[in-house]
Design a protein around this nucleic acid. Sequence first.
DNA 1: CAAATATATGCAAGCGCTTACACTTCATGC
DNA 2: GCATGAAGTGTAAGCGCTTGCATATATTTG
Lengths: 339, 339
Amino acid sequence: MNKTDNPTLEDVARAAGVSTATISRSINEPDKVAQKTRDRICEVINKLGYTPNFGGRALASKRTNIVGAVIPTMANAMFASGLQAFQETLSASGVTLLVASSGYNSDHELEQIRTLITHGADGLLLIGAARPKATMDFLHLRNIPFVIGWHYDNDPQRLFAGFDNHKAAQVMCDAVLQLGHRRVAMIGGITDGNDRAKSRIDGVRHAVANFAGDAVLLDILEADYTLENGGNAFAKLMSATPAPTAIICGNDVLAAGAVVRASDLGLKVPDDVSITGFDDINLATVVRPALTTMRVPQTDMGRSAARLLLARLAENRQVRSIEFEAELIRRQSLAPPGG
Amino acid sequence: MNKTDNPTLEDVARAAGVSTATISRSINEPDKVAQKTRDRICEVINKLGYTPNFGGRALASKRTNIVGAVIPTMANAMFASGLQAFQETLSASGVTLLVASSGYNSDHELEQIRTLITHGADGLLLIGAARPKATMDFLHLRNIPFVIGWHYDNDPQRLFAGFDNHKAAQVMCDAVLQLGHRRVAMIGGITDGNDRAKSRIDGVRHAVANFAGDAVLLDILEADYTLENGGNAFAKLMSATPAPTAIICGNDVLAAGAVVRASDLGLKVPDDVSITGFDDINLATVVRPALTTMRVPQTDMGRSAARLLLARLAENRQVRSIEFEAELIRRQSLAPPGG
DNA sequence: CAAATATATGCAAGCGCTTACACTTCATGC
DNA sequence: GCATGAAGTGTAAGCGCTTGCATATATTTG
């Protein structure tokens, strides 16, 4: 598995007639080296195709310039574009991204965190705040710098770049209730090991419970984020009597699945039933009717998470969590009951 | 930036009353160590929260168990899910994924390749076969093992896990022509630095040129993969006289944008104009009419690319490229001209 | 112009790990 | 019982780099 022997610092040093220290400096702190020497070194480096050996560098300098991210899955557009922004921002600072996915499973998440750390990650991006004690213990024991994305709360001990899922869901549900809906149902993500999904459901529960009127939350179904599951859950909810007049979905994929299924079942959205989404990914704008949804600042979160983590790693003391606001985007899938 | 001092092999060795070599063995080659010793060591490791220092390990063993991927962008669902599969497969072999994105720019790609290598990647996944000489030179000079995904050709010198974009586009265009379309236009991706986009366009060109009839390829527009660009390009193409009866799109995002715009413009798909996509991502199934598209085996490619790369790194000699077939998926957006 | 300071380079000690080799036990077979 | 070998462990030599310190050279200053 080892590559054929690559040139080392020493090879370069010999060829350039200087010491290894000078080469090292000309790479890492160029202005500590005379212009002339640097030029010569640069030339030799290119001729030899030298690149610093990673292991040696990491060992000597005690840092890798690698940060890791453990996200539920890249297959969800929301994480993918956030991760993209995260990576781009890191890249601009010469830091590289190690990724792993947990599949929304917390045991798996711990395993992946371990892996990333043993693979040299200086810091981590994690999604959501809730995790088992074992995971927290490991993080603390090893004193690992990390940032939590896609979630925000007031815990001053930790670093967040996210938004308040509970509040956002509540805003959405309030909007639904304001329009006159009284029989509401929800299709949420699987809450096990996913505090964002849980918060969104709680937000809806809370909104219904505190509504100054007699609204009912008929049912809450949990489903993996696929179009088909969204469709199936929708069908199930609509087969109840009385049927809900609005269905709040935990994300756009579920909602899009529901919208499509509605049309298959001959139900008109929003006339027969309103459907709302969450995240505002491409899907939301393309289904007909287009989804009323909560826009989540995916790119901003990714970018900010990177900045926070970089600052934290640079030991800037003034690192503070950033709260973003999810924004209600009104489109056609939500209307007063009965059209 | 350095973490507080973590326990080292030596700490563990001292605490367990054995030599560092034994600890190392019990981690890397457990069955070379007596059960009893191993148990004791394991206990100490857990108590101390020891994890091997990455730099030391990489330096001594000359491998990192990291592979890198440079993809155009994770924000495109097709790459995201392929990358997800790639990562999962690697993970199952204890290998971790370093990601970088090129933004479809080949200078940037080279830079990212360099970064990944200096960050310790043992091997790489790259997308598409076409790249500038400088990049190829670097890859060869450093003798870097790599696999090319999302593309296939017969070059026996290289390792592919992909499909023939040219052929796939041709299949799609043939299907369009078979249905009776004679005025065809295309909305492709930006071909600069993107051989897949180019191949898809060439495939369509080729199909039209070789059609046993008098079909015309009216126009080819290139656009970044966004819904809006797809819509704009569509509007532009439809404003020509005579207008095309079918528009072949280089990917589903462009096609979905076109379908949505068609409806905004009061055009019926497929009655007034047929639209086809490429990739078969979620979007394709959700727009109405649903997209006729080429299904691309994203997950399979990701998984196979990982297997190929792992095999290559393990120096298995019997590593051979894998060709996948894209599959024509017929849905409602394509019909004979005039409905 | 000597002294003081700034700038450029070299020296050499590790960083924490793996691994070839040497050594010690202990079981086995004759 | 003793040679033989297997199994378990230790010793120590690096892997390629960074970096504090010492040294050498250039520049400034009174």
